[in-house]
């Protein structure tokens, strides 16, 4: 059984549309994901590619229960996201990191890391601090344990956010365009960390526009367009066969400079 089973989900958002004839705004819905199904196993790095607005981030947010789904179901490790009581367990299973770093501003780095495991997993402060130190060492920021978020660069904040997600010992990491707000130098810092984690066997599900990351680290690539899955292939197949045969993928890759 796959760890994450997305079973033909539909997700739409309410939007306002201007009605020319009536000369007023009317309520409308924008369907982002339509009858979408996919499975993820607990292994390797899966990269979600595709143009903006195709529902990549929405898919991740649905898996984490941040968005409620209209139809279908998502089963994470045997638990349904529709079951509100299991949402906490699901979020423990899938750690998530966002594009905008949101380290808690009233806590220093160490407390940012230890808050969730101490409150939710009942970990003792001492164990949490020890684990936090290991993870900070892993992301190369052990010296910053007393720093506040405004004393850190964007790349450092994102590395801390990754460590914070790993504190909960998740089975998979959901990464939502985590390098999009960073300059190339910081991006490479963060990607190096991810590459390290991947080599240690941490399972990741990443939305990204970093082709270098997709080419070096990914084991499987999903290409999405207009709310549906265009291609689900291994990395090698994607960059060789699909690139040649699928026009949509070819033009996307051309625009992104690959």
């Amino acid at each position: 059984m796959a760890m994450i089973e997305v079973k033909s989900i539909t997700k739409s958002f309410p939007v306002k549309k201007y009605d020319q004839a009536a000369k007023k705004y009317v309520k409308d819905t924008l369907t982002v994901l339509r009858d979408f199904s996919v499975n993820f196993d607990q292994e390797g790095v899966t990269v979600l590619l595709g143009p903006s607005g195709t529902g990549k981030s929405t898919l991740l947010r649905c898996i984490n229960g941040l968005e409620t789904i209209d139809k279908g179901d998502i089963i994470v490790d045997g638990m349904s996201v529709r079951d509100k009581h299991q949402l906490r367990k699901i979020r423990e299973t899938c750690g998530m990191v966002f594009q905008q770093t949101v380290l808690f501003p009233h806590l220093d780095v160490m407390d940012n890391l230890t808050l969730a495991p101490c409150t939710l997993l009942g970990m003792s402060k001492k164990d949490a601090v020890e684990r936090a130190k290991q993870l900070l060492d892993k992301v190369g920021l052990l010296s910053k344990e007393k720093a506040r978020h405004n004393e850190l660069s964007g790349g450092e904040q994102q590395r801390i956010a990754i460590a914070r997600a790993l504190m909960m010992n998740p089975k998979a990491l959901l990464l939502d365009e985590i390098t999009s707000a960073l300059d190339p130098e910081m991006t490479s810092e963060v990607l190096a960390i991810l590459e390290n984690l991947a080599s240690e066997g941490v399972c990741m599900l990443a939305v990204t526009h970093e082709m270098a990351f997709a080419q070096h680290v990914a084991s499987r690539i999903l290409f999405m367009d207009k709310g549906s899955l265009v291609c689900d292939a291994s990395k090698d197949d994607f960059f060789t066969i699909y690139r040649k045969e699928n026009e949509r993928i070819a033009s996307f890759l051309k625009f992104i400079g690959e």
Binding site: N64, G65, L66, R91, E92, V102, F104, A116, L120, A165
Partner: peptide
């Protein structure tokens, strides 16, 4: 973002 970050941690 803070609400979502803490929700995503399981709070």
């Amino acid at each position: 973002g803070y609400y979502e970050a803490s929700a995503a941690l399981g709070f």
